[in-house]
């Protein structure tokens, strides 16, 4: 269907320290952290709040430079879904997606099919401000996939939504993932979400963060959230947290 996925992300000995704005004390979030995401693999990083998951994702996204170590990922086209939709409210839903397509140099017609894939065709001409939170996040998902990304980064994409909406969006994401293989990194504090979506789950704990546990998810897609295997895996992830 498309070219084979070649994007590999390799973090080697990455360290990152932030200085607490109020107390002035340095907080070492990551130290000598290494992780490899193989081409076509979707890795989920699970951890409690403040374990450096988002920092990790920001480093991979190139938004934050690491203090030490190397990030080797080539120069992939990124599709990013943040915790908040981050839409330009003064542009229509369609324009929000086509703008990203144009910047990525891909056919802007892909915007309409991406919006159709997330079930928002009828709102393409509306302003995002008339949409519900779940609908807005679906626009963000459409934008991330419309740019035909080599690397998809998901930063707690459904944590701001109600559970019912989040469930639907997880399955939607699974569908989009199955359509075309890419490399992906999902950061979440939801163990079930990680088990459902990822090929491999990494549990982060401590400060600086270290890999407390690692699980390979041995299930073909499409997966069901009711699968006992996934529920069992979810329980094991929780115990490692």
């Amino acid at each position: 269907m498309s070219a084979p996925v070649t994007t590999r992300v390799r973090l080697d000995g990455v360290g990152k320290t932030f200085v607490d704005a109020r107390s002035g004390t340095p907080q070492q979030v990551l130290a000598d952290f290494s992780l490899t995401v193989e081409p076509g693999e979707l890795v989920a990083v699970v951890g409690a709040s403040g374990t450096g998951k988002t920092t990790l994702l920001h480093i991979v996204a190139g938004l934050v430079p690491p203090d030490t170590g190397t990030v080797d990922r080539g120069d992939p086209r990124l599709g990013v879904v943040f915790q908040q939709p981050r839409l330009l409210d003064w542009l229509s839903v369609r324009e929000n997606v086509t703008l990203a397509c144009e910047a990525a140099g891909v056919d802007a017609a892909g915007a309409d099919s991406a919006l159709a894939a997330v079930g928002l065709s009828e709102y393409a001409g509306s302003y995002p401000t008339v949409l519900s939170g779940g609908q807005r996040q679906r626009v963000a998902v459409a934008r991330a996939f419309a740019v035909e990304p080599d690397l998809v980064l998901l930063d707690e994409p459904f944590s701001a939504l109600d559970e019912l909406t989040a469930r639907k969006l997880r399955l939607l994401l699974q569908d989009l993932w199955m359509e075309r293989s890419r490399t992906g990194l999902l950061v979440t504090h939801n163990p079930l979400e990680a088990a459902l979506l990822a090929d491999r789950v990494i549990v982060l704990a401590g400060r600086p963060a270290r890999i407390a546990a690692e699980y390979r998810v041995d299930r073909e897609r499409p997966r069901s959230a009711e699968d006992p295997y996934l529920f069992d895996l979810h329980a094991r992830i929780v115990s490692a947290l």
Binding site: A61, G62, L63, L78, V80, F82, R86, L99, A100, A103, A104, R143, V147, L153
Partner: peptide, 8 residues
């Protein structure tokens, strides 16, 4: 940040 990752 969004504009940065999407290379506007």
């Amino acid at each position: 940040e969004m504009a940065h990752v999407y290379r506007f």
